[in-house]
Design a protein around this nucleic acid. Structure first.
Lengths: 336, 336
DNA sequence: TTGAAAGCGCTAACAT
DNA sequence: ATGTTAGCGCTTTCAA
C-alpha cells in the first residue's frame, strides 16, 4: 500500500482531485462542507502529513528561524533562545539553534547552511567583525536580525543592549567604592557586545588591567578559574568579568589561592543569571533581560514578512545589581 | 537579472547543462577539471546557494534534527542540546530546539511540525506518558531517539540514565546521615525520568513527604522559593529537589523563612549544574553527564541512517556529589 | 465548487 | 564527460 505521493493518496481515498485536497488544507472555506468532511476524514485515516519541503519549493515561507549565538549551552544565550522560541510560537515558527564558539569560520559556515535551508530568517549575535556576509544574506532575501548589537550603519533590524552603559555602571560602582586599580577578565578576542562593555568600563575607570582567557577550554568557568593567578598577579582591588559564568569560575580560582572576596578583591559579573544572587558571596553583576531580548528579536523577524516593512532597532538597558562580592576599599592595600 | 532557477542560472553562465552543475556539487570527481573550474567560478560569481527544500523533495535527507525537551532555557537541557549539536556537527546536521513545558499537547504539536518539516530525526525526552505517537512517528520514517528514558518495550533507540539509582544514591546518603523524615520537592506531574528518581528515593528511604509545585510560574526557581513554606510545614529533616534549579530557589525561600541549611534542614539537588558547588551552602547533588547524553543521542540518531541498523540503548550512571548542604542529623529535632 | 495542468529547484537514471 | 529527461509533493492559475 503506497503512501507515496501523500496528497494524491488522500485525493484518491476521498474521491477528489489533489487540488481539492490542497484547498481543504489552505482555504477550507471554499470547499463544500460535505467534500471537506470526506477529505478531512481521509487525511485522518491515512495519517497524512503535508510535506514542508514541497511547500517551500513552491515558494511558501519556511517556519524555521535560525538563531546563531556564541554557545547555546551558555545560560544567557539559552534564555535568549527561549525568548526567541516563545516569540516565534504564535506564528508557528521553530528555532534552529546554532553555536559559533566565537569562530568567524563557523559563523560563516552556519550562515551558509541556514541560507541553503531556506529559513524564514536569521537572528544573530555576530561573532565576526565583518558584517558584509550578513548584508549579503539579507540582500539575497533571508531576513537578518542583529541581537545584542546596534545596527549602526547596517540596513538591518536589531535588538541592542546599551553595553557601553553596562560597562560604565560597573565601573562607576567600583569607583564609588574607592577602587582605582581595576582588572578586566575577558576573552582573547571579545565579541562585539563584550568589547563595548569593556569600553564603557574604561570610560568610567580610566585605565584597566586586562587578563585574557582562551574561551575554548572545557568550559568558560574553568578557563576563568585558571586565570585567577594571572588576575592576582596584577594586584587589582577589583575585577570585572566578561559574564557571571566566568565570575563563578574566578571565585573558585580565587578561593584556591586564598584570596578573599570581597575583602581582598571585589568581583563583578555580567548578566545576572539566576544563581548569581546565591553564590558565596552573592555576586554584584549587571543584569540583562535575556528572555526579552530574544522575544523582541523574534518579533522583529516576523515583522520582516509584512508588506511595507522598514528596519527597526529596539533598545534595552542593562541594570546594575549590587550584592556582596563588591565592597568599599579599605585603603590598606598596596595601592589605592 | 533573474537569479530565479538557481542551478539553471549557473549552468547557463558556465555554458554547461544543469546536470553537470549538479555533478560538480555532489560528485566533483566525475567532472573534467576544466569544466569543474568554470562551473565553480560561475557558482562563486553568482553567489549561488543550492536549495535544501528542492533536494529534500528529491529524497535526500534533511540536515535538520529536532530536539524536543522540557525547556531549552533550563541549563541541564541547554547542555544536552549543546552535546547534540556537537555530536551532529561532523555530519553537517543542525539542531531544531523545542520546549514542551511538559505539556503533552505541545509535545504532540511539535512532533507534528517536525514530521512535516521532514527532519532527519527527532531526539526527545517525552513529556507525555503515552509513547504511541512516538512509535507512529518512527514507523512513518522519522527516526526517534529517546533521551533520558529507557526504551523499555519500545522499538526505538535510547539514551538512558539510571534514574532509579540517582534517587537511591540521594536517599542512601541521607539515611547514612541519620535522616528519617525526608521530603521530596517535585512538579505537579513529574516527567518520566523524574518520577523514576523519586521512586529510587523511596526505595532507599521508605516513606517520603511530597511537596508538589506548579512548574509554570515565571520560573522553576521562583516556584521552589514559594514552596519553601509548604516544605517546612511538613517538618522534614531533609529535602530532595527535582533539580538544582529548584534547590537554588528553595534555598532562597528557606533563608527568607529563617531556616538554616544544613543545620535545620539538609537539601539535595539534582544535575550538578556548574553553580552547585559555589552556592551558599555548596549543594549536595546527583550529577548527570548532560553533554554526553546529548552527544550520545546524536550518535544514535545518525546511526539510524546506516543500512543494517538495529535499535540500541546506551546507559549512563548518575553520581552522588556530597557537599555542605547535607549534614548528619543531630538528633535534637522533633523526630529523628 | 471542483479539476487539469504547469511548474518550484533539484537528482539520478539513461542516453549520447 | 556531458546532456536529456522524468519526476519528488505541492500550490496556483485557469477552465469546466
Amino acid at each position: 500500500m503506497g503512501d507515496s505521493n501523500g496528497m494524491r493518496e488522500v485525493a484518491r481515498a476521498a474521491g477528489v482531485s489533489v487540488s481539492t485536497v490542497a484547498n481543504v488544507l489552505s482555504r477550507p472555506s471554499i470547499v463544500a462542507p460535505e467534500t471537506r468532511r470526506r477529505v478531512q476524514q481521509a487525511i485522518d485515516h491515512l495519517g497524512y502529513v503535508p510535506s514542508g519541503p514541497a511547500r517551500q519549493l513552491r515558494g511558501l515561507p519556511s517556519p524555521i528561524v535560525g538563531s546563531v549565538t556564541l554557545d547555546l549551552a551558555n545560560p544567557f544565550h539559552a534564555e535568549v533562545n527561549r525568548g526567541i522560541e516563545d516569540g516565534l510560537a504564535e506564528a508557528g515558527c521553530l528555532v534552529l539553534a546554532c553555536s559559533t564558539d566565537l569562530r568567524p569560520a563557523t559563523e560563516s559556515r552556519l550562515l551558509h547552511l541556514l541560507q541553503q535551508q531556506n529559513v524564514r530568517g536569521i537572528i544573530i549575535s555576530p561573532a565576526g567583525p565583518d558584517p558584509a556576509q550578513l548584508l549579503e544574506v539579507s540582500r539575497r532575501g533571508t531576513p537578518v536580525v542583529l541581537l545584542d548589537h546596534p545596527k549602526g550603519e547596517l540596513d538591518l533590524c536589531s535588538v541592542a543592549v546599551d553595553d557601553l552603559l553596562g560597562g560604565r555602571l560597573a565601573g562607576e560602582h567600583l569607583r564609588e567604592l574607592g577602587h582605582r586599580r581595576i582588572a578586566y577578565l575577558g576573552a582573547t578576542v571579545d565579541p562585539g557586545p563584550v568589547a563595548r562593555r569593556r569600553q564603557g568600563l574604561r570610560e568610567a575607570v580610566g585605565t584597566i588591567l586586562d587578563v585574557r582567557m582562551d574561551v575554548h577550554p572545557p568550559s568558560l568557568g574553568e578557563a576563568a578559574a585558571a586565570a585567577a593567578e594571572r588576575v592576582v598577579a596584577l594586584a587589582p582591588t577589583a575585577v570585572v568579568c566578561i559574564n557571571d559564568t566566568a565570575a563563578l569560575g574566578l571565585l573558585d580560582g580565587l578561593e584556591a589561592l586564598g584570596v578573599r572576596v570581597p575583602d581582598d578583591l571585589s568581583v563583578v559579573g555580567y548578566d545576572d543569571l539566576p544563581f548569581a544572587r546565591r553564590l558565596a558571596p552573592p555576586l554584584t553583576t549587571v543584569r540583562q533581560p535575556a528572555y526579552r531580548l530574544g522575544f523582541a528579536a523574534a518579533g522583529l523577524l516576523l515583522e520582516e514578512g509584512q508588506p511595507g516593512h522598514t528596519h527597526r532597532e529596539v533598545w534595552f538597558q542593562p541594570e546594575l545589581v549590587i550584592r556582596a562580592s563588591t565592597a568599599r576599599i579599605d585603603g590598606h592595600r598596596i595601592d589605592g
